[in-house]
Amino acid sequence: MEIFKIVGLGITATILSVIIKQYKPEYGIHISIATGVIIFLLIVGKLASILKVMEQLTNKMEIDLIYVKSIFKIIGIAYISEFGAQVCRDSGEESIALKIEFAGKILIMVLALPILLSVLNLIVKLIP
């Protein structure tokens, strides 16, 4: 059972981090980053299979594949920027976390803009 593995890892890392923080607070951040990466690596295979199923689902539709790719990219950017921002926030760097989120927003906007504009153009063209 994968979930036991992940929860066990999480709880162990939390206890370790709490104990270590009393003596060397700077190592707590390292533990939390490492735990996050390990958990992500444990589920990345499952995530890939989900994405494949999604792709098959969209193949059946008449909708263009680029939009789906953009959506997945947006989700990826959101997750990664969230992860980075959360790590920064845990170590008390609120301002750096905000900047990471800002960068993520900009990148998402860059991806979303073509979709937005193409829909707009389409609607304009529909009006006779």
Partner: peptide, 18 residues
Amino acid sequence: SKMKKYLNLVLGFIVMLV
């Protein structure tokens, strides 16, 4: 998170397109 509203925007557009 805060990013959710951006995705919602794009998803709304895609529904509109379909």
